[in-house]
Nucleic acid binder design. Structure first.
Length: 419
DNA sequence: TCTGGGGTCCTAGGACCC
DNA sequence: TCTGGGGTCCTAGGACCC
């Protein structure tokens, strides 16, 4: 069967989530901030029109935000994750072949002999809006990269009404012509600059290059992008994702910390969160890495350091990781450094095998740990957080969220009330 | 004063081995 | 000039994505 890829992309996703539960925001420009209220990570169309850039630091955008009475919100990931699940469940009713590509994007794969792909796209768009309140754009084509091109145009061009199927050669050529090379999926900042130096500035020009030459000059990844633009599908639908190869938990601090205890507490909390993710996927980790750093914008006082611990056999117990992270925190700490960010990474992951033991570990201790971790995870799933004392109580370094909306969909006490 | 977080893949180069 | 050649494994760094 030859197939067609359909990309569904939520418009201004975080802003749209907020607007579902706060309709007054629909008539105002809106932005959503990153963790720590640091950067702008989502903008309504009105905010985009004001010239507010993606990733712009909040303090630099402040004059524009104030002048135009822009609604400013901290990010509310519990809300976005829940809304994302609703959108994905809706999309799954349209095709069993679905790849959830990110929090706000999914690919469907359908038979290319299907009648009227555009009508199919319009149906998806209408249904998702009805069932979830989230507006989406839909792009369809014979490769994923071309579906992204189509989706990009569908989002930007009012003529398309949010849906574009690129199936006829004339339309494909036209779409490639009007797509800047920097907007091609897989071509980022460095590559688009390199191509522009070579005089290649549009997707149409990139599609005319020789994939073998591209592979020699750049990489196999870029060569695949070219083939995909030429209509040759190289990137399959990934509807059965592999388990993670690493888990990271890192945060910028609400204010710099200079106390060793605070650094160790923060690292302990990150370790507990990372270990939860690990166990949720039934994996064990052989390497725990921690890092701590000063502000990356203060070049005069730059400090960055990492420490690693190997676990043999691989481990999944928070208790064991926590014991290790305390010593690693000690090593990372330097008196006089203003720490602005830290994190932990679990690496070299393997599936958990029950009952396989090392000669030197005490089976009774392992069994006790197992029971403790199961109980801990069960309790924390309900939202009541039980934690290790090492994670600290005061948390002077805690991430700031000064403009957070309520957890409308995930907490009973924050469900919106309609009068 | 104030600048996010979490992933994956590819490649080059070093270490090591026969 | 040139100092053997070639395979494999691992890691760090860089690129990309959202």
């Amino acid at each position: 069967m030859s197939s067609l890829f359909v990309l569904i992309d939520c418009n201004n996703f975080y802003v749209s989530c907020e607007r579902v539960f706060a309709p007054v925001l629909r008539r105002r420009p809106v932005v959503v901030l990153s963790n720590n209220d640091g950067c702008i990570v989502a903008r309504s169309n009105e905010a985009k029109a004001l010239g507010i850039a993606m990733g712009m630091p909040r303090f630099k955008a402040d004059p524009l935000l104030k002048k135009n009475n822009v609604a400013v919100l901290s990010s509310n990931y519990a809300l976005y994750a829940d809304m994302s699940a609703r959108v994905m469940q809706t999309l799954a009713t349209f095709s069993p072949a679905i790849e959830i590509y990110s929090i706000d994007e999914a690919f469907l794969e359908v038979d290319s002999r299907r009648q009227d792909v555009s009508a199919f796209g319009r149906d998806i768009r209408k249904t998702v809006l009805q069932w979830t309140g989230i507006p989406v754009s839909v792009g369809a084509a014979t490769t994923k990269t071309m579906a992204k091109v189509a989706g990009h145009i569908a989002k930007k061009s009012p003529k398309t009404d949010g849906v574009l199927a690129l199936t006829c050669p004339r339309h494909i050529a036209c779409a490639l012509e009007r797509t800047d090379i920097a907007d091609v999926w897989g071509i980022g900042r460095k590559l688009s600059a390199a191509f522009k130096r070579l005089g290649i500035t549009t997707a149409a020009q990139l599609a005319k290059t020789d994939p073998q030459w591209i592979q020699r000059t750049f990489s196999i990844t870029v060569a695949k992008t070219v083939l995909e633009l030429q209509g040759c599908a190289c990137i399959e639908l990934d509807d059965t994702p592999e388990p993670n190869k690493s888990f990271t938990v890192s945060r910028s601090f609400g204010r710099p910390i200079e106390q060793k205890d605070s650094l160790v507490e923060a690292l302990s909390l990150f370790t507990a969160r990372a270990a939860e993710k690990l166990r949720a996927q039934q994996q064990c980790a052989a390497v725990l890495t921690a890092f701590a750093m000063s502000s990356r914008f203060d070049k005069q006082n730059a400090y960055y350091n990492t420490a690693s611990r190997i676990f043999d056999p691989a481990e999944d117990s928070s208790r064991v990781f926590m014991a290790a992270i305390a010593a690693m925190g000690e090593r990372l700490f330097r008196p006089g450094v203003a720490f602005k960010k830290a994190g932990v990474i679990l690496n070299r992951l393997t599936p958990k095998h029950h009952g396989r033991l090392d000669l030197f570990t005490d089976p009774a201790q392992v069994a006790r740990d197992e029971r403790l971790m199961r109980a801990l995870d069960a309790v924390n799933r309900t939202g009541n957080h039980v934690f290790f004392a090492a994670e600290g109580i005061d948390k002077p370094w805690q991430t700031r969220f000064d403009h957070r909306s309520a957890a409308y969909t995930t907490r009973w006490d924050e469900i919106p009330v309609v009068f």
